[in-house]
């Protein structure tokens, strides 16, 4: 299948050109996702019943400490969890289709074409002995797109252009590129099939601040251009504040809070969200940041009740007994905390 060289990157030409208004329907719905890693000492409950959804064109942030399960969610969405890890249960509906029901071959076709990943050390995931254009070609070829050398060169140039790189980068090897440029190449590969959903797992954590902003701008520009949704995973709350529409705060394999970003920073609901925001050093005030005392619980034997209670300044007796569930307590805002017990009106789905 060969497409005209001037409008190359179209996988589904039948798709309507007019995009539906932003934030109307859900691209992805995740229901009660459970992922365990089975070790000799028992099952590590890395993701423990997480539900969220993402709307068309939306930017969702997933924030948490190391070990909170955020990267496991990214891998689970692509069904790339390797043994000893396993997706135990749940549903992941991409445009209504449960990814867990697909055969492996079908899933392989979804990766890159529908869901693309920009991984944390993506710049180190480039093949050191292949030129940039060959790495971009591999993705297209794997998804059945055969192009003449000329059409391929045009498409590669167009992709590189869309991430702000010059045409001749196509002929370079990864070692000839800086970290920021390599990360852009990875973004170019990720968008090469116009995915519906981009998962960016700490895409800029290895980059300098100035380059971080440039790479982030590039990523968001191509995301808007494609009308794709993005899940941005990270632990930098500053970056989240600048970039995403909604934030999900992860703690010990569960979502502690999901709120629109402005509400979250104005009035965090979960005590953990509050501490996380307070732990940010600021340029305005000296000494205004503090660490969160204590450590996250072991995911091998999860404590009873709320996982955060040992570090929580508001812990009550109740918290040790009953596990809180994510509930809608304000419009668009969900929190998993007993402090909001009386306020909730309806349990979120």
């Amino acid at each position: 299948m060969s497409s005209p060289s001037h409008h190359p990157i179209t996988l589904t030409p039948s798709h309507p050109v007019t995009l539906p208004p932003r934030h109307t329907h859900h691209v992805l719905e995740v229901r009660d996702l459970v992922v365990h890693y089975h070790t000799t000492r028992g099952a590590v409950q890395a993701v423990n019943g997480v539900s969220f959804d993402i709307r068309e064109g939306e930017r969702l942030g997933l924030v948490g400490e190391s070990g909170s399960g955020k990267s496991t969610i990214a891998l689970a969405l692509l069904r790339l969890i390797r043994p000893p890890g396993r997706i135990e249960s749940g549903e992941m509906l991409l445009e209504g289709v449960d990814l867990l029901s697909l055969y492996e071959e079908e899933m392989r076709r979804v990766r890159l074409a529908k869901i693309a990943l920009v991984a944390q050390g993506a710049m180190n995931s480039l093949n050191p002995v292949l030129r940039v254009k060959e790495q971009i070609r591999d993705g297209l070829k794997d998804h059945g797109i055969q192009l003449s050398p000329r059409a391929l060169a045009d498409r590669v140039a167009e992709l590189l252009n869309s991430v702000g790189l010059r045409r001749d980068v196509a002929n370079m090897f990864p070692h000839e590129l800086s970290g920021g440029m390599k990360q852009r190449v990875c973004i170019a590969i990720a968008i090469s099939l116009r995915p519906k959903l981009i998962i960016a797992d700490e895409p800029t954590s290895a980059l300098d601040v100035v380059v971080q902003r440039q790479v982030m701008d590039t990523l968001l520009a191509v995301q808007e251009d494609l009308g794709a949704s993005i899940i941005l995973i990270g632990h930098d709350m500053g970056l989240m504040a600048q970039v995403v529409d909604r934030v999900g705060i992860m703690y010990a394999g569960n979502l502690a809070e999901v709120s629109p970003v402005s509400d979250l920073f104005r009035a965090p609901l979960h005590p953990y969200s509050n501490l996380l925001i307070a732990s940010l050093p600021s340029l305005e005030e000296k000494g205004a940041f503090q660490g969160i005392p204590g450590l996250p619980p072991s995911l091998l034997n999860r404590p009873t009740g709320c996982a955060f209670r040992t570090r929580c300044p508001h812990a009550m007796e109740h918290c040790a007994v009953v596990t809180p569930h994510l509930r809608e307590v304000e419009p668009e805002r969900r929190v998993s905390c007993h402090l909001y017990e009386n306020e909730w009106s309806r349990e979120s789905a």
Binding site: V210, M237, G238, S282, L283
Partner: peptide
Amino acid sequence: LLVQSIPKADPNHPWHG
């Protein structure tokens, strides 16, 4: 440039510079 590139933890303060 460095100071402006820091993402501020405040959604109402857009990343400028």
